[in-house]
């Protein structure tokens, strides 16, 4: 009974918060609400018996996405009022049909939602998922946790391409910055003692917890991506605390970190072709291969996400200099 109450309150508040996130006139407020929504979503994953997803949401949704958005919101705070005013003003065809764009957009959005609902209602009565298949095949995968066996064995293809997407995103950010490494990105000049303290505590603990999640991923929720995301968050914290972090890496090491996992999947895949199929390893050495691949995923995810953050968060030079000049020295 109360169990259901938890679900209803959670679902209702997520919907309301999402609405406010999008319609909030002030960007910063909207971003904090978005972070709150991420937290509520991870509670929803918990209620839907998906601890793996909750872990990923905790590390990525609450950690990295929040940081990215907070940065984006703040650097633009000054232009906020002007932008809001311009958004309200209408011209062109919008002057003749006030609100027409909104009505069309709302209609389209509702139509999509309706189609989605119809599809859900139309689902066959009997569950037709792959739970059974995964359960019977898991023995052969080399690991005892179903999600890991899907991720790194049955559908390793998907995971390989995902790692490829990460690599592409990192290349994109580097291209946008017209650079081969992140050494030109802004590093925090004056250090804050508390922050140094926090970084010194969190870095070793993050390594410990990431190692734990990596290792336990073979038999319980956890795994390489979550571990990598936690390490990435720790690297970002280092950067924020004034250490060099990932932007201290040379082009060679950055590139190696970014490409490691993609290359490892490729290599394992080709070795697999000698046994008949690309990326197929359903035999005794499965666990070893999976652990090795996961280790490369940890490294590549950590480096890539931290690099994406450093790249996306950096400001155009003269602007940040002005900010620094105005910031008073810390009194601790």
């Amino acid at each position: 009974m109360l169990e259901h109450g938890v679900d209803i309150v959670l679902a209702g508040s997520i919907a309301v918060v999402a609405w406010r996130v999008l319609l909030e006139p002030q960007l910063f407020r909207s971003m904090v609400l978005f972070i709150a929504m991420g937290l509520m979503l991870s509670l929803a994953w918990v209620r839907l018996a998906a601890p793996d997803i909750a872990l990923a949401e905790a590390a990525i949704g609450a950690g990295l996405t929040g940081i990215l958005l907070i940065r984006a919101a703040q650097t633009e705070a000054a232009q906020e009022a002007a932008a809001a005013a311009r958004e309200a003003a209408t011209s062109g065809w919008r002057r003749w049909f006030p609100g027409a764009g909104r009505i069309v957009s709302a209609a389209a959005a509702l139509a999509f939602a309706a189609v989605l609902l119809v599809a859900v209602i139309d689902l066959p009565g009997e569950p037709i998922g792959l739970t059974e298949a995964a359960a019977t095949e898991m023995e052969a995968s080399g690991v005892e946790h179903p999600v890991t066996s899907v991720l790194l064995n049955f559908r390793a293809y998907d995971t390989w391409l995902e790692v490829g997407v990460l690599l592409l995103a990192a290349m994109g950010v580097l291209a946008i910055h017209r650079t081969y490494n992140l050494r030109s990105t802004r590093s925090e000049e004056h250090t804050m003692l508390v922050l140094t303290w926090l970084a010194r505590i969190i870095l070793p603990l993050a390594v410990l917890i990431a190692g734990y999640l990596y290792w336990s991923g073979t038999h319980q929720p956890g795994g390489a991506f979550q571990a990598g995301a936690i390490l990435a968050a720790a690297l970002v914290l280092m950067q924020l605390a004034g250490f060099r972090g990932v932007s201290g890496l040379s082009t060679l090491w950055l590139g190696a970190g970014l490409m490691l996992s993609f290359a490892a999947f490729l290599a394992v895949g080709f070795i697999g072709t000698f046994e008949g199929e690309f990326l197929r390893y359903r035999h005794a050495t499965g666990e070893l291969i999976i652990l090795a691949l996961e280790l490369t995923i940890v490294v590549s995810t950590a480096v890539t996400l931290a690099a994406l953050f450093a790249g996306a968060g950096s400001q155009s030079g003269d602007d940040s200099d002005a900010v620094r000049a105005r910031t008073p020295p810390e009194s601790l």
């Binding site: 990923a56 999600v147 998907d158 990460l166 995103a169 990192a170």
Partner: peptide, 18 residues
């Protein structure tokens, strides 16, 4: 729970953040 959607969403979250 069905592990295939879980794996897909896990992939999706990482792709979404990048």
């Amino acid at each position: 729970a069905d592990p295939v959607p879980h794996a897909m969403v896990l992939t999706g979250i990482v792709v979404a953040v990048s």
